[in-house]
Design a protein around this nucleic acid. Structure first.
Lengths: 343, 343
DNA sequence: GTTAGCACTCTTTTAAGTCGAGTGCTAACT
DNA sequence: AGTTAGCACTCGACTTAAAAGAGTGCTAAC
């Protein structure tokens, strides 16, 4: 659908004004905001046509126009000027995510917290997917006579630990056996290769040692499960209250939706594009009917590994927020790549 | 301040009715809720006196009475029947906090989440204070040619890890030296004994090895700092919206207050009593002017170690929530004690 | 194709009036 | 002295009416 240049100008102005004020915008307001030398009547005509095309709508007969989801979409796809980020903003973002020697979880948690503060939206991020991760290292740290702590380190830098309780007193030969099993059967193994079937054949192959080793092996398997699960980091839920009246659903429902990480991670994972903007109903979830999501993927070693995004009202400031999310996400990707390659 | 038995009965009825409905309660309503055989006029007289004493107040001239903070206080201290918990509730709580082989952090996070769901309030918990914790174990896990991961385990079950980057390539003698230092200088040491002064004397005593060992030692010190810092676990922020109109401050301010863990941990730490109820302005923080906090301490090995609490409107249901918080907190204490002693 | 003008629509604001819950007070009663 | 019925009074909540204001759509002229 091609629009005349003037229509585009008007649509852009409506979107931008509405984003800024939250008020329906009328023909006169538009006139002063626009550098076009036409009368308000002309603008009214144009707006009527834009409304007929589905880009604008009226809350009620005698109010100004507000963009429809399609209007926003057209604006984001064709009209929005993607001005490059200000250097000061860049530096601000850099300062916001830099964390020395931190774990991936900590970096991502910090990133969503910071992004939320910066954008006044709720922000989410997911930890790197465990899909292509392998087991890099497993350590056993004895703690008591029958207990020890197993520490698992993945190729994506995730570290998980778990207390493991043996059925008999520990001794050095057991520990040695455990390390042998680790070496022969776990190290370098993709996380998602560890399922009950492979575990069973492994246990079967251990013969007499099986009984004493089972707690260790199953602990490792549980750790692998945990390490594979992508976690959702949430930040700035309180910002939802900032634009309360813009979210169609009640603020409560939205917050509740965010709290359950599951749908969020689905939301973020479903998008294939490098940077994705979902406007209103474009999201599958009805709780997000009146919300927009701006999300980007970060890469580790060039591999698409996880996402960072913000959730705001549909009248979110796309033009300035999209570059910010993009920049921050790239930065986090670099940071994570760097952290992991130093290991 | 001693109140006549009838006044107490009336005060209790007002408090309980207001807690239940949120509406100011008048003399006639009270009459039917009370098993006293007096007229509404008598009740009015009594209520007027209770108001003069500062236990009740009127939102406006022609409305019923609501309790003042002093009224709630008197109710909580003298009137509230502390009926023992229902067995079904107990079992529910037990199911809510039980988590096998979990870290203290996970247990506490789960506990506040569960408590929030159960009480419809926001819930908080703090991780065990590092005050009396000692270093139980330190492990070095080599990961790259110059990097490794240091894992620190405290006597309170906290596990922290950090990447450590050496200035020169790692070799086994360095690692051995590190373990010697750990053994002689760190193991068993209280976390709060590790300050820059002791570190400096330690480094000084190492002579020629100082240079290569500094990254390791300082990583250990950072880990100790981290392990000592009590963390605040937050749950059920969205519940704040449930009683939005009851919180004097805006919901936003309150959520924002919760988000910064610092004041919360101060709040919880400041109370010395085993179980503490702070009503409205009794809290130092102005964001909590119209909120009540019910908090309890959990003990590990009989030692007061951390707190769990809920934050709700002043018209929170003290009588039934206090025992719940108490029970859950005790349970968590037992669980943590058990988890730690098994190690 | 553009524009001035104007009637029309619909929300928001303001004002006024009514209703009702609940009180405080007085005077009588036990 | 304590209790109670009765009643005037207060003040918010709700209803209705009217006025104001913003903005449109349409028509007719340019």
């Amino acid at each position: 659908m091609e629009l005349s240049q003037r229509k585009e100008k008007i649509l852009a102005a409506v979107v931008e004004h509405y984003i800024k004020t939250g008020e329906p915008v009328g023909s006169k307001t538009l006139l002063s905001a626009l550098d076009i030398t036409v009368s308000s009547a002309t603008i009214r005509n144009e707006m009527a046509e834009l409304a007929a095309l589905g880009y604008l709508e009226q809350p009620h007969t005698s109010a100004g126009r507000i963009p429809t989801n399609e209007g926003y979409r057209y604006y984001v796809d064709n009209l929005m000027g993607v001005r490059p980020l200000d250097d000061s903003v860049k530096r601000q973002i850099e300062a916001g995510v830099s964390l020395k020697n931190a774990s991936p979880e900590a970096i991502l948690a910090k990133a969503s917290e910071f992004l939320a503060d910066m954008t006044d939206c709720a922000a989410v991020s997911t930890t790197p997917s465990g899909e292509n991760a392998t087991i890099k290292r497993i350590e056993f740290v004895p703690v008591g006579t029958r207990t020890g702590m197993i520490v698992l380190l993945t190729s994506t830098g995730v570290i998980k630990s778990k207390v493991c309780r043996s059925d008999v007193d520990l001794n050095s030969s057991m520990i040695e056996k455990f390390y042998n099993i680790v070496k022969s059967s776990f190290l370098g193994l993709p996380l998602d290769d560890i399922d009950t079937a492979t575990l069973q054949t492994l246990v079967a192959s251990m013969g007499a040692d099986a009984l004493t080793m089972i707690p260790f092996v199953s602990a490792v398997s549980e750790l692998a499960q945990e390490a594979m699960r992508t976690m959702v980091m949430l930040g700035g839920q309180s910002n939802i209250l900032r634009y309360r009246e813009d979210y169609g659903t009640t603020a409560y429902e939205l917050m509740d939706f965010l709290r359950r990480g599951e749908p969020i991670s689905q939301l973020l994972a479903n998008s294939k594009a490098d940077l994705d903007v979902k406007i209103g109903g474009e999201n599958k979830f009805k709780q997000l009917e009146n919300s927009s999501v701006i999300m980007a993927h970060y890469n580790i070693d060039g591999d698409n590994r996880g996402s960072i995004g913000i959730i705001g009202p549909t009248r979110i400031d796309y033009a300035s927020l999209i570059p910010s999310v993009r920049y921050l996400t790239d930065l986090v990707g670099e940071l994570l790549t760097q952290t992991l390659n130093e290991d």
